[in-house]
Design a protein around this nucleic acid. Structure first.
Length: 310
DNA sequence: TACCAGGATGCTA
DNA sequence: TAGCATCATGGT
């Protein structure tokens, strides 16, 4: 992705104990994060790029290696600090979840595994497109589609920026062919057109609240309940949003459902009830726990994606 | 070859 | 409102 011209690293140390770049990368919430070489992570967000390097120069409280974020003070202050959710105390969340998880061994293990996974605050438009693409696709395939989309429509700045809605809308409904998007081509094109017409502002959607913002997102073609919850969680910062996908359904059925129906025969309403039963106690940060549980399930089942470049 | 993937849509009853 | 078939494409 990066052509190699971006190597300067002035360095902002990140020594938070609850920060694990590799786990964040493979956790399925972000698709443009790569481990370039061992301990060296490249992250692209909207039109921005930053490099995150694991280093012995700084250490976490437990003595393990911390990180250096290669950007200026102002870039860190204005963008990446919030992007990595560094204004949130994850230690408190971990302790609360461990205390509230009761006798549920799966949640305890997921919390201990996922404690370094921060729920990133990503760009609204980028999460809308990314999670429209994500439906019925495996994570490596999602990453490839998004990269091809960036290379075709993104502005080149030494790396490819995420395409603007203008660029995708201007390409027309036929312009998205050949990227491996399949039936999602129409969803993305129509979403770009509506996004340009509405020009939704993040702050305004936040004011509307979780429910109304979700309903607005679902007015786009290709955004249903699950994708809307991903956008609410990763793009708008509603940390209580709880996306229910196939993996979460597996978990809910296996760990919380005590009935006789098979996994396929349970209705979405029943899964929502199970989610409230199992995870309602973690409000107002159910989404963070969801992300830990999701990531742990990927690892546990051997389906975690590789994060390195092709 | 058959099946599945961080689902959504449109039709039918 | 619920249940169902269908929707491209890539990977195993």
């Amino acid at each position: 992705m990066n052509d190699g011209s971006i190597n300067a690293c002035t360095g902002i140390p990140i020594t938070d104990s609850f920060f694990d770049a590799r786990k964040i990368m493979i956790s399925g919430q972000v698709f443009r994060m790569y481990e370039n070489s061992p301990g060296c992570f490249d992250i692209y967000s909207k039109e921005r790029f930053v490099r995150l390097i694991e280093t012995e120069e700084y250490s976490k409280a437990d003595g393990s290696a911390a990180y250096v974020l290669c950007c200026s003070d102002s870039e860190y202050r204005d963008y990446w600090y919030h992007y990595f959710d560094l204004d949130r105390n994850y230690g408190e969340t971990v302790n609360k979840v461990l205390a509230d998880s009761g006798q549920n061994d799966f949640i305890r293990k997921a919390c201990l595994y996922g404690a370094g996974i921060r729920v990133l605050n990503q760009d609204l438009w980028e999460t809308m497109v990314s999670f429209i693409i994500s439906q019925q696709k495996q994570i490596p395939s999602i990453r490839k589609c998004i990269e091809r989309l960036c290379e075709r429509f993104g502005e080149y700045k030494g790396w490819y920026a995420f395409p603007t809605a203008e660029a995708i809308a201007a390409a027309g409904p036929e312009g998205l062919k050949g990227l491996g998007l399949g039936y999602r081509e129409r969803y993305i094109y129509e979403t770009a057109v509506k996004f340009l017409a509405d020009r939704p502002e993040k702050e305004e959607l936040l004011k509307r609240g979780y429910k109304a913002a979700g309903e607005y997102l679902m007015s786009y073609t290709g955004i249903g309940r699950k994708v809307a919850n991903c956008i609410l969680l990763f793009g708008l910062g509603f940390k209580d949003a709880f996306p229910i996908d196939t993996h979460i359904m597996d978990i809910l059925h296996r760990e919380f459902y005590k009935g006789e129906l098979s996994r396929e025969r349970l209705t979405l309403k029943e899964y929502e009830r199970l989610a409230e039963t199992g995870f309602g106690c973690f409000s107002p940060c159910r989404g963070i726990v969801q992300q830990w549980v999701f990531a742990y399930e990927l690892i546990r089942s051997g389906r975690a994606p590789e994060g390195d470049k092709d």
